[in-house]
Design a protein around this nucleic acid. Structure first.
Length: 256
DNA sequence: ATGGCCAATTTTATTGGA
């Protein structure tokens, strides 16, 4: 199974690129973030014509997550289901061929002293409890834009980002706690070096200068991660006309 | 080559992204 995650930064702005990429890479399952559209606006027809089913949790203008899969997506649910605020479309879960797939779009946080950063920390607390409630003995992947730089290998200009809303000790600790629960960072299972990023600022020649961050992650339970044969960032998708500011991250699973 | 922000809406400014 080839699994991918991609923050498309508006699926309507990215529809042409997304379809070309699906045909190029042929992923079996794709977690999408930042759809920036309602379910009514989602391009179901084009996605279906490309051979994919879609489970969509949309929202007007902001956020929005989805799961695309070549096989049926079963037992779909949205949000955390913990009784808390579900007004922002940031989580969708579904099961594809006995693997639980969760697409997440973590709160950005804007600035450390903002209400939005406080919300980010609360939201990450909810995410951790949500993960702990899953069946972690079974094949499960929780993929998406975590808006967290795990460690110094994942940032090009450490001094410029350290202490900010994407990269600080508190966030690194929270990310590590997800790994301590038993999840595996599938990318790091195959690559130990730094300098490999999934996001580059549109501004100030971010991509040509490789001023990037690795903030998009595919975390998997050992039952799934132990079967991974490869993981990579498709940085070609940051090139050319109308790219998202994020590149897709992919991982291949399965024995043979 | 990969190029000095982009996308949606509240649209000719503003908000959020990271």
């Amino acid at each position: 199974m080839l699994l991918a995650t991609w923050n498309v930064n508006s699926i309507r702005a990215r529809e042409e690129r997304l379809l070309a990429w699906l045909e190029h890479r042929c992923p079996d399952v794709v977690c999408l973030q930042e759809l920036k559209c309602t379910e009514e606006q989602f391009p179901y027809d084009a996605i279906t014509a490309a051979g994919y089913q879609a489970a969509v949790h949309g929202q007007k203008t902001y956020n929005g997550v989805a799961i695309l899969a070549k096989s049926p997506i079963e037992d779909v649910s949205t949000g955390f289901g913990d009784g808390g605020d579900e007004s922002q479309a940031r989580v969708i879960s579904g099961t594809v061929e006995d693997t639980r797939i969760i697409s997440v779009y973590v709160v950005n946080g804007k600035s450390i002293d903002s209400d939005k950063y406080a919300l980010k920390l609360e939201w990450l607390d909810r995410l951790e409890r949500f993960v702990a409630r899953q069946d972690l003995a079974a094949p499960l992947a929780i993929c998406g834009d975590y808006n967290i730089v795990p460690d110094e290998r994942d940032v090009e200009k450490k001094e410029a980002w350290e202490g900010g809303v994407l990269y600080n000790e508190d966030l690194s600790t929270r990310f590590q706690r997800l790994l301590d629960i038993g999840l595996v960072d599938t990318f790091r299972r195959h690559h130990q070096e730094g300098g490999l990023y999934s996001w580059w600022d549109y501004r100030m020649l971010g991509f040509p200068k490789n001023n990037g961050l690795r903030i998009d992650h595919l975390l998997a339970t050992p039952a799934l991660a132990d079967t991974s044969t490869d993981a990579y960032i498709d940085r070609d998708q940051r090139k050319g006309q109308k790219p998202s500011d994020h590149a897709p991250v992919l991982a291949e699973f399965g024995l043979g």
